[in-house]
């Protein structure tokens, strides 16, 4: 099926089994290549702007900036684990921001009701995506491209194309509040990602999701409810996007049609960077976290250095290619070295 993800079925190299020194280096650079890139970035930026970059305030800043992207990318990891692409989450980020602000400003709902309704709307989009893919058997890329385009229309219709702004209040406090000096978005992100990590690794749902992504026919024959799992994956992805949209709207104090656009490429970059962390090309939450950090650190560091935005894009694209190439080539060399 197109639009679904084929995993390479090459044998994974076992560390420790073949204890050559050079081999161990290759194992390390294969598995830890991407985290190493993160460390190198941190060292590089510290060296380039020692006063500004490696300060407690800036590090907290980086985490705070990465919060929304981390929630989006964490959610996106699930459909990818189940072997399905989702292209609609960026539009969901915008939608939920617009709705939350709109419900507050235009309908005068209390902030929590506005937030809950926005999240409910986001989840429904995810359910629709899942139903289209699982029951109508539409190619996931096509289905989510379709819903994404329709959402764009909805967003324009609801907002008339202009940002809906709002005055500071309990809603914007979502992004500003802090507990013990830690900004609330960071805490929220940690809870969401922790939950996703546990769900993927230690629950039936997670195991079944991985099974569906690896071999859908075998999963069905083993009694896995493939359609249901697919729907849940899309729904969680959209719910996460909705949550990120709310946090983002609270931070910028408005709902905008284009608010989520930047997340599409960044979230995919983060998840694919993460797929080469620790495991051999499998999508997983810890990897996604590393990927998100690489993306955010790059932006933060470069903007501290005063780089223009074209430099930022060149740099980020380059890192995506380089980091994944590093881990896949060292894995290839490792396989070759095991052979003689």
């Amino acid at each position: 099926m197109e639009g679904t993800i084929e995993k390479a079925t090459k044998p994974s190299a076992e560390p420790g089994a073949a204890p050559g020194k050079a081999q161990r280096m290759l194992v390390l650079s294969g598995r830890y290549g991407t985290p190493a890139v993160l460390v190198l970035l941190l060292i590089g930026f510290t060296a380039a702007s020692p006063q500004a970059f490696m300060t407690g305030q800036n590090l907290l800043n980086i985490l705070n900036q990465s919060a929304t992207l981390a929630i989006v990318a964490g959610g996106l990891t699930l459909p990818l684990v189940a072997g399905k692409f989702d292209l609609s989450f960026a539009a969901v980020v915008s939608l939920s921001g617009i709705l939350a602000v709109g419900f507050l400003e235009r309908s005068g709902l209390p902030w929590f009701a506005a937030v809950l309704l926005a999240l409910a709307a986001a989840s429904i989009i995810g359910l629709v995506n899942g139903l289209l893919v699982a029951y109508l058997r539409i190619n996931p890329i096509v289905a989510t491209l379709g819903t994404s385009t329709m959402l764009l229309g909805v967003n324009y219709a609801y907002s008339n194309g202009t940002p809906i702004t709002l005055a500071p209040g309990p809603f914007t406090d979502i992004a500003r509040a802090s507990v013990l000096g830690i900004p609330a978005p960071i805490i929220l992100t940690a809870i969401v990602l922790g939950g996703l990590w546990v769900a993927l690794n230690f629950t039936l749902l997670g195991h079944h999701m991985q099974a569906v992504g690896t071999n859908q026919v075998a999963a069905r024959m083993a009694g896995v409810r493939v359609a249901r799992i697919t729907v849940i994956a899309f729904a969680i992805c959209a719910l996460c996007a909705g949550l990120a949209g709310v946090v983002l709207a609270a931070r910028i104090g408005s709902g905008q049609v284009t608010a989520g656009d930047g997340y599409l490429l960044n979230a995919f970059a983060a998840v694919f960077l993460g797929a080469s962390v620790l495991r051999d090309g499998d999508f997983h939450i810890l990897g996604t976290v590393v990927g998100v950090l690489i993306v955010t650190v790059t932006f933060n560091g470069l903007s501290l250095l005063g780089a223009q935005s074209y430099v930022q894009f060149l740099f980020q694209g380059g890192i995506l290619v380089a980091a994944t190439a590093l881990s896949s080539t060292s894995r290839g060399m490792l396989l070759a070295s095991v052979r003689h």
């Binding site: 995993k7 230690f202 629950t203 039936l204 195991h207 079944h208 099974a211 690896t214 071999n215 075998a218």
Partner: peptide
């Protein structure tokens, strides 16, 4: 039947994961 890249354990237990569930309320393995 098989999930080739998954472990032997995952392949053996795909039908019976619930057996190692922590408790009725907590769906953790």
């Amino acid at each position: 039947a098989l999930f080739l890249t998954h472990s032997v354990e995952d392949n053996l237990h795909i039908t019976v994961w619930d057996r190692w569930r922590m408790s009725k309320l907590l769906p953790l393995i």
